[in-house]
């Protein structure tokens, strides 16, 4: 860890002695501030979007919300820290390895918590995933302890200046990986048999099983896939926010908000919802009140729900058929 100090090259460390105390800071214009809020909002929002996509994949097949989604993100971060920092495997290998390991957890979650349900009602599945999330969080606490962990960023810590605002290089990675996820998922659902089968399950599970799709198998695939995406989210956000065992719940709530705002089950909705919530939080914190920043996003969400009960891009018909 000691050599981390070399990540910083802007040479400002020298000015922060006692002599620097009384200096005034360089000015920042209002438009640069706005830009900075937008950059921050998009970065955080991308993570919410990734969590929301994970929710959607499972929802589309099972109609249930997987409350352990946030734990996948947490695990992604912590497993990556273990492989990258403790075992010292380069990013290019540790990243796919982490995703594979967390995907295994997703598969186990389906096999041990979802499949054994004798009457898989939506409520039972929700409670099962809540139970599983407690279990995973507890296990992570036993394994990693309670302290936060850091992961070196993929490409250094030198911020990039842009029109008076700064961009963290890791922020670019976050947004980039969201794009990759969106593109890969679009191709997967449009071009592959497995993806098409998943979509069929989403439209009508009983009809899909009539045409020979194994729905139980598809549930497994959905859990594996959303665990993989959650893990990716965790890996890319850890260099920005650090990671500790109990962060999953907050990410799950934010991701769920994003998911509902966009309309449950809709992938463009998840991305829109995630980015919107990130932006409102950041702009609300900067321009109005940072104490109430989470309230603004939620009020918008409530407003949208009251006007459009199935979210921004959700399908009203679909949400009518599905009941709790």
């Amino acid at each position: 860890m000691a050599n981390c100090r070399t990540y910083w090259h802007n040479g400002r460390t020298g000015t922060t002695g006692i002599t620097g105390l009384t200096k005034n800071m360089e000015e920042i214009s209002f438009s640069s501030q706005l830009l900075q809020y937008a950059i921050t909002g998009v970065t955080i929002g991308s993570i919410y979007a990734m969590v929301a996509i994970g929710f959607n994949i499972i929802y589309n097949v099972t109609e249930a919300i997987n409350f352990a989604q946030g734990e996948f993100v947490m695990l992604g971060g912590l497993v990556m820290v273990f492989l990258r920092v403790a075992v010292n495997i380069p990013v290019i290998f540790s990243l796919p390895l982490t995703i594979m390991l967390v995907t295994m957890v997703g598969i186990l979650l389906d096999r041990l918590a979802i499949k054994p349900l004798s009457k898989p009602s939506v409520l039972a599945m929700v409670i099962a995933t809540i139970g599983a999330s407690f279990f995973i969080r507890g296990a992570a606490m036993m394994l990693w302890g309670k302290n936060p962990f850091d992961l070196p960023p993929f490409s250094g810590r030198n911020p990039i200046s842009f029109l008076g605002a700064v961009v963290q290089p890791q922020g670019l990675w976050v947004v980039g990986f969201l794009l990759v996820v969106v593109v890969v998922l679009t191709l997967f659902f449009d071009r592959t048999i497995l993806g098409k089968a998943l979509r069929a399950c989403a439209v009508n599970p009983s009809a899909s099983s009539l045409v020979g799709i194994n729905v139980k198998h598809m549930v497994l695939v959905s859990f594996a896939l959303s665990a993989a995406i959650g893990a990716l989210g965790g890996i890319v956000i850890t260099p920005i926010s650090l990671m500790e065992y109990d962060r999953g719940a907050m990410l799950a709530v934010k991701g769920f908000s994003a998911c509902v705002l966009g309309g449950i089950g809709s992938f463009p909705g998840a991305v829109t919802g995630g980015l919107l919530i990130g932006l409102i939080e950041s702009l609300g914190a900067g321009l109005v009140s940072s104490g109430y920043k989470d309230v603004f996003a939620l009020l918008l969400l409530l407003f949208v729900l009251f006007v459009r009960p199935s979210g921004l891009l959700g399908n009203a018909e679909v949400s009518k058929i599905r009941k709790f």
């Binding site: 929802y59 939620l298 729900l305 009960p309 199935s310 009518k320």
Partner: peptide, 20 residues
């Protein structure tokens, strides 16, 4: 007027707002 997960989200949002 909302159903299922949408009702869950609306009440969840209410809960978080009150806590804040």
């Amino acid at each position: 007027r909302l159903r299922g997960h949408y009702l869950a989200m609306a009440t969840l949002a209410f809960c978080i707002i009150i806590t804040i």
